[in-house]
Simulated scan of single mutants.
Amino acid sequence: MKKSQFVIIGLGRFGSSLAKELVELGYEVLGVDKDEEAVQDLSQVLTHAVVAEATDEDVLRSIGVRNFDCGVVAIGDDIQASILTTILLKDLGVKKVVAKAMTELHGRVLEKIGVDRVVYPERDMGIRVAHQLVSPNLLDYIELSKDYTIAELTVPKCLNGKSLQELNPRGRFGCSIVAINKPQGVIIAPVATEVLAEKDVMVIIGTNEGIEQFEDTIIR
């Protein structure tokens, strides 16, 4: 099966980090930026990297953006350029367009012009760090929607040797432990008799309220 190909437009902190990670994961990535220095820095890392003005339709057409499976507009300092580039990618037939938003208003405009996904790197990172600061056992936090969250929680000493059946997170809090990361490997969809050990990592999904109650009642 052919792997997806990505074009990342805007090679600032977010765009370059995303591009490098996609390459690390084995995908082909074309990086585009009008800053020659930014392109030069990544030319040996990415599959291809070109200096180009992304708001020029002829330029985007000439570098073949329509042939990519996903286009990511990671322009952060120029909202007008971000919006115009996004419109051009849609018009040129890029199958999936993802765009970085600087503000809620910017994000709403991007949604109106039909992007497939809007991302808010700074806002989302702020939310995740805030939750990690107030919950010592919380390793990661991803908001699936306004009401639902998936979280990674370290198993504390007080839960060592406890089974999922004893904890009963679904019955008590409406949450599900969907995976447990143990030193010997990850257990996906663990059974009720699975026993936790200190420093295992639980991946739990549920409502924001349910996960909070689980933390307050079981872990703290």
Rank of each mutant, 00 (worst) to 15 (best):
S145F: 05
M202F: 15
D140I: 10
A38V: 00
L11Y: 01
A192T: 03
N168C: 06
D35R: 11
P156G: 11
I87F: 10
V97R: 02
G206R: 03
A197N: 13
I83V: 10
P121W: 02
E143S: 09
A189W: 14
V94G: 04
L105Y: 08
N181V: 12
K146P: 04
D78S: 04
S163I: 01
A151S: 12
T154S: 13
V155M: 11
N181H: 14
V191E: 09
R117L: 12
I8E: 00
N208Q: 15
V109G: 08
G10V: 00
M125H: 15
K34I: 09
N137V: 13
S82N: 14
I205M: 14
V115C: 01
E57D: 15
I150S: 09
D58E: 10
F14C: 03
L88D: 07
D41S: 12
V7R: 07
V73N: 03
R123P: 04
A151K: 01
K157Q: 06
R66Q: 11
E21H: 09
P183G: 14
T103E: 03
V118Q: 04
F14N: 04
V72E: 00
D41P: 05
A179C: 07
V50R: 12
R172L: 04
A197T: 10
D124H: 10
V119A: 01
I142H: 05
I127R: 08
L11N: 04
N168S: 12
V186M: 08
L196Y: 11
I218E: 13
G93Y: 02
T86H: 01
R170D: 13
G210T: 09
K95V: 01
D78V: 06
